[in-house]
Computed example of a mutant assay.
Amino acid sequence: MPSHDLLDQAITYVKRLKEKVEKLNQRKEQLKGDGENGGEYTMGSNILPQLSLREVGSTLEVNLITGRDKSFMLHEVVSVLSQEGAEVVSASYSNADDKVFYTIVSQAIWSRIGIDSSRVHERLKKLVF
């Protein structure tokens, strides 16, 4: 690979890291002063995502709540599930006020192996936070 391509990749990587650090610092500041708003974590008008997983046998249900202004791609969640050995059975979303509610139900491709829900949870946290 030519050195200028490597340099371009490195620059892009550093820019992404800088953006992530800025977002995390904003979130940190918001969480520091969050004691007075009744537990609803918000960042300005942005709602911080909420993620939960429920595992029943070889079925895994992913519930995600985000703000409307969150740039979120449903196909990225589907991709994580697929890579972890799950097949999406159904996916739905609904809007209420400034929130978007996602529900994705998946089934283990190989029922004997199942789905490592803790690993899925960690990967999805990295994706949405």
Results as ranks from 00 to 15, higher is better:
M1Q: 08
P2W: 05
S3L: 15
H4S: 13
D5M: 13
L6D: 09
L7N: 03
L7P: 00
L7E: 14
Q9N: 11
Q9D: 10
A10L: 14
I11M: 06
I11V: 13
I11N: 05
T12Q: 14
V14P: 00
V14F: 08
R16A: 09
R16M: 08
L17T: 04
L17S: 03
L17R: 07
V21P: 00
V21S: 12
E22W: 03
K23I: 00
L24R: 08
N25Q: 12
N25E: 14
R27H: 03
K28N: 09
K28M: 12
E29Q: 12
E29I: 01
Q30G: 12
L31I: 12
L31D: 09
K32R: 14
D34E: 09
D34F: 01
D34A: 15
D34Q: 04
E36W: 02
E36Y: 04
E36F: 10
N37C: 01
G39I: 04
Y41G: 00
Y41R: 09
Y41K: 12
Y41I: 08
T42D: 02
M43R: 04
M43S: 10
M43D: 04
S45I: 07
S45R: 10
L48M: 13
Q50W: 04
L51A: 03
L51T: 07
L51S: 09
L53P: 14
R54V: 13
E55K: 15
V56D: 15
V56R: 03
V56I: 11
S58D: 13
L60I: 08
E61I: 14
E61D: 14
L64Q: 05
G67W: 07
R68Y: 05
R68A: 04
D69Y: 05
D69L: 11
M73H: 06
H75R: 02
H75I: 01
H75C: 01
E76V: 01
V78C: 02
V78W: 03
V80A: 10
L81C: 07
L81N: 11
L81W: 12
S82W: 13
Q83L: 10
E84K: 14
G85C: 10
G85P: 03
S90K: 11
S92M: 05
Y93K: 04
S94I: 00
A96W: 06
D97Q: 11
D97A: 13
K99N: 09
K99I: 02
K99L: 14
V100I: 15
V100R: 14
Y102M: 06
Y102R: 03
Y102W: 15
T103K: 15
T103E: 15
V105S: 13
V105T: 15
S106F: 10
A108I: 06
I109F: 07
S111T: 12
R112C: 03
I113G: 00
I113C: 01
G114L: 06
I115T: 05
S117V: 09
S118K: 15
S118G: 02
H121I: 01
L127G: 06
V128N: 07
V128Y: 10
V128A: 04
F129R: 09
